[in-house]
Design a protein around this nucleic acid. Structure first.
Length: 414
RNA sequence: GGAGAGGUGGCCGAGUGGUCGAAGGCGCAGCAUUGGAAAUGCUGUGUACUCUCACGGGUACCGAGGGUUCGAAUCCCUCCCUCUCCGCCA
Protein backbone atom coordinates (compact mmCIF):
# COMPACT_ATOMS: atom_id res chain seq x y z
CA UNK A 1 0.00 0.00 0.00
CA UNK A 2 1.16 3.46 -0.85
CA UNK A 3 1.08 5.98 1.97
CA UNK A 4 -1.94 8.14 1.19
CA UNK A 5 -0.02 11.14 2.49
CA UNK A 6 2.39 10.83 -0.40
CA UNK A 7 -0.60 10.91 -2.71
CA UNK A 8 -1.93 14.04 -1.02
CA UNK A 9 1.34 15.91 -0.87
CA UNK A 10 2.93 14.78 -4.08
CA UNK A 11 0.38 13.42 -6.53
CA UNK A 12 2.70 13.99 -9.47
CA UNK A 13 5.09 11.44 -7.99
CA UNK A 14 2.35 8.84 -7.89
CA UNK A 15 1.16 9.68 -11.38
CA UNK A 16 4.67 9.35 -12.75
CA UNK A 17 5.09 6.04 -10.96
CA UNK A 18 1.84 4.72 -12.41
CA UNK A 19 2.88 5.85 -15.84
CA UNK A 20 6.27 4.17 -15.54
CA UNK A 21 4.61 0.96 -14.44
CA UNK A 22 1.94 1.14 -17.13
CA UNK A 23 -0.88 1.28 -14.60
CA UNK A 24 -3.90 2.73 -16.33
CA UNK A 25 -6.83 1.52 -14.25
CA UNK A 26 -6.47 4.22 -11.58
CA UNK A 27 -7.50 7.81 -12.13
CA UNK A 28 -5.28 9.67 -9.67
CA UNK A 29 -7.08 12.98 -9.94
CA UNK A 30 -10.40 11.31 -9.31
CA UNK A 31 -8.90 9.47 -6.35
CA UNK A 32 -7.57 12.72 -4.93
CA UNK A 33 -11.00 14.28 -5.36
CA UNK A 34 -12.61 11.43 -3.47
CA UNK A 35 -10.02 11.78 -0.75
CA UNK A 36 -10.66 15.47 -0.23
CA UNK A 37 -14.40 14.81 -0.22
CA UNK A 38 -13.74 12.14 2.34
CA UNK A 39 -11.73 14.45 4.60
CA UNK A 40 -14.37 17.13 4.41
CA UNK A 41 -17.14 14.71 5.22
CA UNK A 42 -15.07 13.15 8.00
CA UNK A 43 -14.65 16.53 9.58
CA UNK A 44 -18.36 17.18 9.28
CA UNK A 45 -19.30 13.81 10.79
CA UNK A 46 -16.87 14.19 13.66
CA UNK A 47 -18.26 17.60 14.47
CA UNK A 48 -21.78 16.20 14.60
CA UNK A 49 -20.59 13.38 16.83
CA UNK A 50 -18.83 15.85 19.10
CA UNK A 51 -22.05 17.85 19.42
CA UNK A 52 -24.00 14.68 20.13
CA UNK A 53 -21.54 13.58 22.78
CA UNK A 54 -21.61 16.96 24.42
CA UNK A 55 -25.40 17.17 24.50
CA UNK A 56 -25.84 13.57 25.61
CA UNK A 57 -24.17 14.42 28.86
CA UNK A 58 -26.80 17.06 29.54
CA UNK A 59 -29.76 14.79 28.86
CA UNK A 60 -30.28 13.79 32.48
CA UNK A 61 -31.03 17.32 33.53
CA UNK A 62 -32.06 18.92 30.30
CA UNK A 63 -34.93 17.31 28.37
CA UNK A 64 -34.46 19.71 25.49
CA UNK A 65 -31.02 18.31 24.79
CA UNK A 66 -32.55 14.92 24.23
CA UNK A 67 -34.79 16.28 21.50
CA UNK A 68 -31.90 18.05 19.80
CA UNK A 69 -29.79 14.90 19.78
CA UNK A 70 -32.71 12.87 18.47
CA UNK A 71 -32.85 15.32 15.61
CA UNK A 72 -29.20 14.70 14.80
CA UNK A 73 -29.60 10.95 14.48
CA UNK A 74 -30.85 10.70 10.94
CA UNK A 75 -28.40 13.23 9.56
CA UNK A 76 -25.54 11.49 11.30
CA UNK A 77 -26.39 8.01 10.14
CA UNK A 78 -26.89 9.18 6.54
CA UNK A 79 -23.54 10.90 6.53
CA UNK A 80 -21.81 8.00 8.23
CA UNK A 81 -23.10 5.66 5.56
CA UNK A 82 -21.80 7.99 2.89
CA UNK A 83 -18.48 8.26 4.67
CA UNK A 84 -18.04 4.49 4.84
CA UNK A 85 -18.95 4.11 1.23
CA UNK A 86 -16.42 6.72 0.20
CA UNK A 87 -13.71 5.20 2.36
CA UNK A 88 -14.33 1.77 0.83
CA UNK A 89 -14.07 3.18 -2.67
CA UNK A 90 -10.82 4.94 -1.82
CA UNK A 91 -9.35 1.82 -0.26
CA UNK A 92 -10.35 -0.23 -3.25
CA UNK A 93 -8.47 2.18 -5.53
CA UNK A 94 -5.49 2.49 -3.20
CA UNK A 95 -5.12 -1.28 -3.17
CA UNK A 96 -4.39 -1.19 -6.89
CA UNK A 97 -1.63 1.39 -6.68
CA UNK A 98 1.70 -0.29 -7.30
CA UNK A 99 4.70 0.25 -5.06
CA UNK A 100 7.13 3.07 -5.75
CA UNK A 101 10.27 2.15 -7.62
CA UNK A 102 13.83 2.21 -6.48
CA UNK A 103 15.94 4.57 -8.62
CA UNK A 104 18.10 1.51 -9.34
CA UNK A 105 15.35 -0.24 -11.31
CA UNK A 106 16.17 -0.23 -15.02
CA UNK A 107 13.61 0.73 -17.64
CA UNK A 108 12.21 -2.00 -19.80
CA UNK A 109 9.15 -3.97 -20.79
CA UNK A 110 9.90 -7.60 -20.05
CA UNK A 111 12.55 -10.01 -18.85
CA UNK A 112 14.54 -9.39 -22.02
CA UNK A 113 15.28 -5.91 -20.69
CA UNK A 114 16.60 -7.02 -17.32
CA UNK A 115 20.09 -5.79 -16.61
CA UNK A 116 22.74 -8.45 -16.08
CA UNK A 117 24.84 -7.52 -13.09
CA UNK A 118 27.22 -10.44 -12.94
CA UNK A 119 27.68 -14.05 -13.76
CA UNK A 120 29.48 -16.81 -11.92
CA UNK A 121 30.80 -20.24 -12.79
CA UNK A 122 31.74 -21.94 -16.03
CA UNK A 123 29.06 -23.38 -18.20
CA UNK A 124 29.67 -27.11 -18.41
CA UNK A 125 31.16 -28.47 -21.64
CA UNK A 126 29.72 -31.71 -22.97
CA UNK A 127 31.05 -33.95 -25.70
CA UNK A 128 27.46 -35.11 -26.22
CA UNK A 129 24.12 -33.39 -26.65
CA UNK A 130 22.91 -32.54 -23.12
CA UNK A 131 19.34 -33.49 -22.27
CA UNK A 132 16.85 -31.41 -20.42
CA UNK A 133 15.72 -32.45 -16.95
CA UNK A 134 12.44 -33.82 -18.23
CA UNK A 135 14.09 -36.28 -20.54
CA UNK A 136 16.78 -37.13 -17.99
CA UNK A 137 14.14 -37.58 -15.32
CA UNK A 138 12.11 -39.95 -17.43
CA UNK A 139 15.13 -42.01 -18.43
CA UNK A 140 16.28 -42.32 -14.85
CA UNK A 141 12.70 -42.86 -13.63
CA UNK A 142 13.00 -40.08 -11.06
CA UNK A 143 10.45 -37.61 -12.47
CA UNK A 144 6.92 -38.72 -13.30
CA UNK A 145 4.81 -36.01 -14.87
CA UNK A 146 2.48 -38.47 -16.54
CA UNK A 147 1.16 -39.86 -13.31
CA UNK A 148 1.16 -36.36 -11.85
CA UNK A 149 -1.41 -35.59 -14.50
CA UNK A 150 -3.27 -38.80 -13.82
CA UNK A 151 -3.78 -38.28 -10.09
CA UNK A 152 -4.05 -34.50 -10.09
CA UNK A 153 -3.76 -32.54 -13.29
CA UNK A 154 -1.23 -31.60 -15.92
CA UNK A 155 1.25 -29.36 -14.14
CA UNK A 156 1.62 -31.68 -11.18
CA UNK A 157 4.37 -34.24 -10.94
CA UNK A 158 6.10 -36.80 -8.79
CA UNK A 159 9.70 -36.90 -7.76
CA UNK A 160 10.48 -40.58 -7.42
CA UNK A 161 13.21 -42.66 -5.85
CA UNK A 162 16.62 -41.04 -5.92
CA UNK A 163 15.10 -37.93 -7.49
CA UNK A 164 12.91 -37.48 -4.44
CA UNK A 165 15.91 -38.14 -2.23
CA UNK A 166 17.97 -35.57 -4.09
CA UNK A 167 15.23 -32.97 -3.81
CA UNK A 168 14.75 -33.68 -0.10
CA UNK A 169 18.49 -33.44 0.43
CA UNK A 170 18.64 -30.07 -1.29
CA UNK A 171 15.81 -28.64 0.76
CA UNK A 172 17.15 -29.97 4.03
CA UNK A 173 20.69 -28.82 3.33
CA UNK A 174 19.42 -25.35 2.39
CA UNK A 175 17.43 -25.03 5.59
CA UNK A 176 20.48 -25.98 7.61
CA UNK A 177 22.64 -23.43 5.80
CA UNK A 178 20.12 -20.65 6.39
CA UNK A 179 19.76 -21.55 10.04
CA UNK A 180 23.56 -21.32 10.31
CA UNK A 181 23.27 -17.84 8.85
CA UNK A 182 20.86 -16.78 11.56
CA UNK A 183 17.49 -17.56 10.01
CA UNK A 184 14.71 -19.03 12.15
CA UNK A 185 13.13 -22.08 10.57
CA UNK A 186 9.35 -22.31 10.43
CA UNK A 187 6.87 -24.91 9.45
CA UNK A 188 3.84 -22.98 8.26
CA UNK A 189 0.19 -23.23 7.30
CA UNK A 190 -0.16 -23.94 3.59
CA UNK A 191 -3.49 -22.15 3.36
CA UNK A 192 -4.22 -18.52 4.06
CA UNK A 193 -7.22 -16.25 4.29
CA UNK A 194 -8.00 -13.40 1.95
CA UNK A 195 -6.72 -10.77 4.35
CA UNK A 196 -3.34 -12.49 4.40
CA UNK A 197 -3.07 -12.58 0.62
CA UNK A 198 -4.24 -9.01 0.38
CA UNK A 199 -1.75 -7.90 3.00
CA UNK A 200 1.17 -9.40 1.16
CA UNK A 201 0.09 -7.84 -2.13
CA UNK A 202 -0.89 -11.08 -3.83
CA UNK A 203 -4.39 -9.70 -3.87
CA UNK A 204 -5.64 -7.91 -5.81
CA UNK A 205 -2.66 -8.11 -8.16
CA UNK A 206 -2.36 -11.88 -8.66
CA UNK A 207 -5.90 -13.00 -7.97
CA UNK A 208 -5.92 -15.35 -10.96
CA UNK A 209 -2.87 -17.20 -9.62
CA UNK A 210 -4.44 -18.48 -6.42
CA UNK A 211 -6.22 -21.71 -5.72
CA UNK A 212 -9.27 -20.77 -3.73
CA UNK A 213 -10.81 -23.37 -1.45
CA UNK A 214 -14.50 -23.77 -2.00
CA UNK A 215 -16.84 -22.41 0.68
CA UNK A 216 -13.94 -21.23 2.81
CA UNK A 217 -12.12 -17.97 3.29
CA UNK A 218 -8.96 -19.89 2.45
CA UNK A 219 -6.65 -20.27 -0.51
CA UNK A 220 -3.60 -22.50 -0.94
CA UNK A 221 -0.47 -20.46 -0.45
CA UNK A 222 1.45 -19.38 -3.53
CA UNK A 223 4.55 -19.02 -1.38
CA UNK A 224 5.40 -19.18 2.31
CA UNK A 225 6.11 -15.45 2.03
CA UNK A 226 2.38 -14.94 2.37
CA UNK A 227 2.14 -16.57 5.76
CA UNK A 228 5.58 -15.63 7.06
CA UNK A 229 5.14 -11.91 6.42
CA UNK A 230 1.56 -11.90 7.71
CA UNK A 231 2.87 -13.73 10.80
CA UNK A 232 3.65 -10.34 12.34
CA UNK A 233 0.54 -8.57 11.06
CA UNK A 234 -0.91 -6.02 13.49
CA UNK A 235 2.19 -6.21 15.66
CA UNK A 236 4.69 -3.67 16.88
CA UNK A 237 8.19 -5.14 16.89
CA UNK A 238 10.88 -3.82 19.19
CA UNK A 239 13.45 -2.24 16.92
CA UNK A 240 16.28 -3.97 18.76
CA UNK A 241 14.75 -7.32 17.80
CA UNK A 242 15.26 -6.49 14.13
CA UNK A 243 16.18 -7.83 11.71
CA UNK A 244 14.01 -10.90 11.98
CA UNK A 245 15.17 -13.46 9.44
CA UNK A 246 12.74 -16.29 8.76
CA UNK A 247 12.82 -19.32 6.53
CA UNK A 248 10.41 -22.11 5.72
CA UNK A 249 10.25 -25.01 3.33
CA UNK A 250 6.74 -25.32 1.95
CA UNK A 251 4.82 -26.34 -1.12
CA UNK A 252 3.69 -23.42 -3.27
CA UNK A 253 0.50 -23.58 -5.32
CA UNK A 254 -0.10 -21.51 -8.41
CA UNK A 255 -2.75 -21.80 -11.08
CA UNK A 256 -0.32 -20.45 -13.69
CA UNK A 257 -3.30 -19.30 -15.69
CA UNK A 258 -2.27 -18.59 -19.25
CA UNK A 259 1.16 -20.23 -19.21
CA UNK A 260 1.82 -22.45 -22.18
CA UNK A 261 4.57 -23.25 -24.61
CA UNK A 262 8.18 -24.22 -24.47
CA UNK A 263 8.81 -22.57 -21.12
CA UNK A 264 6.44 -25.05 -19.52
CA UNK A 265 8.23 -28.21 -20.58
CA UNK A 266 9.39 -30.36 -17.71
CA UNK A 267 8.72 -29.28 -14.19
CA UNK A 268 9.77 -25.72 -14.64
CA UNK A 269 6.42 -23.98 -14.53
CA UNK A 270 4.05 -26.08 -12.50
CA UNK A 271 1.02 -25.86 -10.27
CA UNK A 272 2.84 -27.05 -7.19
CA UNK A 273 6.47 -26.79 -6.27
CA UNK A 274 8.59 -26.84 -3.16
CA UNK A 275 10.42 -23.72 -2.02
CA UNK A 276 12.76 -22.74 0.77
CA UNK A 277 12.17 -19.04 1.36
CA UNK A 278 14.05 -16.19 2.99
CA UNK A 279 12.01 -13.48 4.69
CA UNK A 280 13.47 -10.47 6.46
CA UNK A 281 11.75 -7.84 8.58
CA UNK A 282 14.04 -4.87 9.15
CA UNK A 283 14.25 -1.15 9.82
CA UNK A 284 13.58 0.99 6.75
CA UNK A 285 17.15 2.22 6.55
CA UNK A 286 18.42 -1.36 6.47
CA UNK A 287 16.31 -2.88 3.73
CA UNK A 288 18.87 -2.25 1.03
CA UNK A 289 21.51 -4.02 3.10
CA UNK A 290 19.35 -7.07 3.73
CA UNK A 291 18.19 -7.18 0.15
CA UNK A 292 21.84 -7.55 -0.79
CA UNK A 293 22.39 -10.06 2.00
CA UNK A 294 19.62 -12.30 0.71
CA UNK A 295 21.24 -12.13 -2.72
CA UNK A 296 24.55 -13.15 -1.18
CA UNK A 297 22.83 -16.13 0.41
CA UNK A 298 21.34 -17.17 -2.91
CA UNK A 299 24.72 -16.91 -4.56
CA UNK A 300 26.40 -18.76 -1.73
CA UNK A 301 23.99 -21.68 -2.11
CA UNK A 302 24.45 -21.91 -5.87
CA UNK A 303 28.21 -21.64 -5.52
CA UNK A 304 28.26 -24.43 -2.97
CA UNK A 305 26.30 -26.50 -5.46
CA UNK A 306 28.69 -25.40 -8.18
CA UNK A 307 25.90 -24.25 -10.47
CA UNK A 308 26.74 -21.50 -12.97
CA UNK A 309 24.40 -18.53 -12.67
CA UNK A 310 23.89 -14.90 -13.45
CA UNK A 311 22.31 -12.13 -11.44
CA UNK A 312 19.97 -9.68 -13.10
CA UNK A 313 18.47 -6.45 -11.93
CA UNK A 314 14.82 -6.80 -12.89
CA UNK A 315 13.42 -4.02 -15.07
CA UNK A 316 10.21 -2.08 -14.49
CA UNK A 317 8.11 -4.17 -16.85
CA UNK A 318 9.14 -7.44 -15.22
CA UNK A 319 8.78 -6.22 -11.64
CA UNK A 320 5.54 -7.16 -9.90
CA UNK A 321 3.40 -4.33 -8.58
CA UNK A 322 4.32 -4.85 -4.91
CA UNK A 323 8.07 -4.80 -5.60
CA UNK A 324 10.35 -1.83 -4.99
CA UNK A 325 13.44 -3.49 -6.40
CA UNK A 326 14.10 -7.05 -7.45
CA UNK A 327 17.01 -9.28 -8.34
CA UNK A 328 16.58 -12.52 -10.18
CA UNK A 329 19.18 -15.22 -10.07
CA UNK A 330 19.15 -17.39 -13.17
CA UNK A 331 20.96 -20.70 -13.19
CA UNK A 332 22.35 -22.06 -16.42
CA UNK A 333 20.32 -24.98 -17.80
CA UNK A 334 22.43 -26.82 -20.37
CA UNK A 335 19.52 -28.94 -21.60
CA UNK A 336 17.55 -25.80 -22.26
CA UNK A 337 20.63 -23.99 -23.51
CA UNK A 338 20.14 -20.84 -21.52
CA UNK A 339 19.85 -19.20 -18.13
CA UNK A 340 16.52 -19.64 -16.39
CA UNK A 341 15.18 -18.06 -13.23
CA UNK A 342 15.70 -20.05 -10.06
CA UNK A 343 15.56 -17.30 -7.42
CA UNK A 344 13.83 -14.01 -7.11
CA UNK A 345 14.69 -11.56 -4.41
CA UNK A 346 12.44 -8.59 -3.80
CA UNK A 347 12.78 -5.59 -1.57
CA UNK A 348 9.14 -4.75 -0.84
CA UNK A 349 9.96 -1.70 1.15
CA UNK A 350 7.01 -0.83 3.41
CA UNK A 351 4.44 -1.96 0.85
CA UNK A 352 3.41 -5.17 2.60
CA UNK A 353 4.11 -3.94 6.10
CA UNK A 354 1.78 -0.98 5.69
CA UNK A 355 -1.03 -3.22 4.45
CA UNK A 356 -0.47 -5.68 7.26
CA UNK A 357 0.42 -3.07 9.86
CA UNK A 358 3.78 -4.46 10.89
CA UNK A 359 5.52 -1.71 12.80
CA UNK A 360 8.60 -1.17 14.90
CA UNK A 361 9.17 0.93 17.95
CA UNK A 362 12.52 1.99 19.33
CA UNK A 363 13.50 2.89 22.87
CA UNK A 364 12.56 6.51 22.38
CA UNK A 365 9.05 5.45 21.49
CA UNK A 366 9.53 6.32 17.84
CA UNK A 367 7.33 4.19 15.66
CA UNK A 368 7.47 3.36 12.01
CA UNK A 369 6.60 0.77 9.45
CA UNK A 370 9.13 -1.99 8.90
CA UNK A 371 10.47 -3.05 5.55
CA UNK A 372 10.25 -6.60 4.26
CA UNK A 373 12.47 -8.62 1.96
CA UNK A 374 11.24 -11.74 0.27
CA UNK A 375 13.76 -13.95 -1.43
CA UNK A 376 13.92 -17.48 -2.74
CA UNK A 377 16.58 -19.76 -1.34
CA UNK A 378 15.97 -22.85 -3.49
CA UNK A 379 13.09 -24.52 -5.32
CA UNK A 380 12.58 -27.67 -7.36
CA UNK A 381 14.02 -25.73 -10.24
CA UNK A 382 17.41 -25.98 -8.57
CA UNK A 383 17.07 -29.77 -8.58
CA UNK A 384 16.39 -29.52 -12.31
CA UNK A 385 19.49 -27.35 -12.73
CA UNK A 386 21.57 -29.92 -10.86
CA UNK A 387 20.28 -32.65 -13.14
CA UNK A 388 21.06 -30.75 -16.32
CA UNK A 389 24.47 -29.46 -15.24
CA UNK A 390 25.84 -32.65 -13.77
CA UNK A 391 24.53 -35.11 -16.33
CA UNK A 392 27.01 -37.56 -17.77
CA UNK A 393 27.37 -39.16 -21.19
CA UNK A 394 25.80 -42.37 -19.88
CA UNK A 395 22.70 -40.47 -18.72
CA UNK A 396 23.63 -40.57 -15.05
CA UNK A 397 23.76 -37.56 -12.76
CA UNK A 398 26.53 -36.67 -10.32
CA UNK A 399 25.31 -35.38 -6.96
CA UNK A 400 26.93 -32.16 -5.72
CA UNK A 401 29.38 -32.76 -2.87
CA UNK A 402 27.51 -30.74 -0.31
CA UNK A 403 24.37 -32.81 -0.73
CA UNK A 404 25.99 -36.25 -0.49
CA UNK A 405 25.79 -36.43 3.30
CA UNK A 406 22.02 -36.02 2.91
CA UNK A 407 21.41 -38.21 -0.13
CA UNK A 408 23.66 -41.03 0.95
CA UNK A 409 24.73 -41.58 -2.69
CA UNK A 410 26.90 -39.62 -5.11
CA UNK A 411 25.36 -40.56 -8.41
CA UNK A 412 21.98 -41.30 -9.91
CA UNK A 413 22.03 -43.86 -12.69
CA UNK A 414 19.53 -46.11 -14.33
C1' G B 1 -19.20 -34.25 15.56
C1' G B 2 -21.43 -33.54 21.00
C1' A B 3 -21.30 -30.53 25.74
C1' G B 4 -19.55 -26.32 28.31
C1' A B 5 -16.58 -21.71 29.21
C1' G B 6 -14.63 -17.35 27.39
C1' G B 7 -12.70 -13.07 24.13
C1' U B 8 -11.22 -5.79 27.85
C1' G B 9 -4.68 -1.86 26.88
C1' G B 10 2.45 -4.96 26.01
C1' C B 11 0.60 -8.95 29.77
C1' C B 12 -2.83 -10.30 33.94
C1' G B 13 -7.41 -8.60 35.45
C1' A B 14 -11.86 -5.36 37.42
C1' G B 15 -15.86 -3.36 35.28
C1' U B 16 -23.90 -5.00 33.64
C1' G B 17 -26.41 1.92 30.60
C1' G B 18 -23.70 8.21 31.50
C1' U B 19 -18.86 10.36 36.32
C1' C B 20 -15.05 4.65 31.41
C1' G B 21 -10.04 5.18 27.00
C1' A B 22 -11.42 2.16 30.89
C1' A B 23 -9.81 0.56 38.46
C1' G B 24 -5.87 -2.49 40.32
C1' G B 25 -1.51 -5.31 39.40
C1' C B 26 2.70 -6.76 36.33
C1' G B 27 5.94 -4.94 32.75
C1' C B 28 8.37 -0.67 30.68
C1' A B 29 10.57 4.53 30.98
C1' G B 30 12.23 8.74 33.94
C1' C B 31 13.50 10.71 38.72
C1' A B 32 14.85 9.94 43.98
C1' U B 33 17.60 6.64 47.17
C1' U B 34 22.76 3.60 46.44
C1' G B 35 29.76 3.04 45.86
C1' G B 36 26.84 0.12 42.24
C1' A B 37 22.62 -2.92 42.24
C1' A B 38 18.29 -5.16 44.50
C1' A B 39 14.30 -3.49 47.30
C1' U B 40 11.47 0.94 48.03
C1' G B 41 9.10 5.70 46.80
C1' C B 42 7.30 9.31 43.22
C1' U B 43 5.96 10.38 38.14
C1' G B 44 4.77 8.82 33.42
C1' U B 45 3.26 4.96 30.01
C1' G B 46 -2.55 2.31 24.27
C1' U B 47 -3.59 2.71 18.97
C1' A B 48 -5.44 4.98 14.63
C1' C B 49 -7.55 8.95 12.01
C1' U B 50 -8.18 14.08 11.77
C1' C B 51 -7.91 19.67 12.77
C1' U B 52 -4.04 23.36 14.12
C1' C B 53 2.22 27.09 12.23
C1' A B 54 2.19 25.66 17.21
C1' C B 55 0.31 25.05 22.25
C1' G B 56 -3.51 21.95 22.01
C1' G B 57 -8.28 20.04 20.31
C1' G B 58 -11.88 16.48 18.09
C1' U B 59 -13.41 11.51 16.61
C1' A B 60 -13.11 6.28 16.74
C1' C B 61 -11.54 1.70 18.97
C1' C B 62 -13.05 -3.17 25.15
C1' G B 63 -12.99 -10.12 19.09
C1' A B 64 -15.92 -8.40 14.15
C1' G B 65 -20.43 -6.54 12.12
C1' G B 66 -25.40 -4.88 12.91
C1' G B 67 -29.51 -3.28 16.39
C1' U B 68 -31.91 -0.79 20.79
C1' U B 69 -30.94 4.16 23.27
C1' C B 70 -30.30 11.08 23.95
C1' G B 71 -26.03 7.94 25.45
C1' A B 72 -23.26 1.01 24.91
C1' A B 73 -17.19 -2.36 27.18
C1' U B 74 -22.01 -3.01 29.66
C1' C B 75 -28.60 -4.75 26.73
C1' C B 76 -30.25 -7.61 21.94
C1' C B 77 -28.98 -10.24 17.16
C1' U B 78 -25.46 -12.45 13.68
C1' C B 79 -20.66 -14.03 12.74
C1' C B 80 -15.47 -15.13 13.94
C1' C B 81 -11.90 -16.94 17.21
C1' U B 82 -9.82 -19.32 21.68
C1' C B 83 -9.99 -22.77 25.72
C1' U B 84 -11.87 -27.30 28.53
C1' C B 85 -14.22 -32.18 28.48
C1' C B 86 -16.15 -36.33 25.42
C1' G B 87 -15.98 -38.74 20.61
C1' C B 88 -13.25 -39.58 16.05
C1' C B 89 -8.52 -39.43 13.80
C1' A B 90 -3.03 -38.52 10.46
Amino acid sequence: MIDIKILRNNPEKIKLNCKKRSVTNIDIDKLLGMDSDYLELLNNVENIRAKRNRLSKECKTNPEAREIVKGLKQELSDKEALLNELKAKINQQMAWLPNLLSPDVPDGNDDGDNEELKSWGDKPQFDFEPLDHQELGEKLDIIDTKRGGKVAQSGFYFWKGKGAQLASALFFWTQQELVKKGFTLFSTPCAAKEKTLYGTGYLPFFADQTYQLENEDLALIGTSEQVLVAYHGDEILASESLPLCYTANTPCFRTEAGSYGKETRGIFRVHQFQKVEQIVFCLPEDSETYHELCLQNEEYLLQQLNLPYRVVNVCIGDLGAPGYKKYDVDAFFPGFGNYREVCSNTNLNDFQARRLSVRYQDNNGTKGIVHTISATAVTDRVVCAIMENFQQADGSIIVPNVLRPYTGFDQIKS
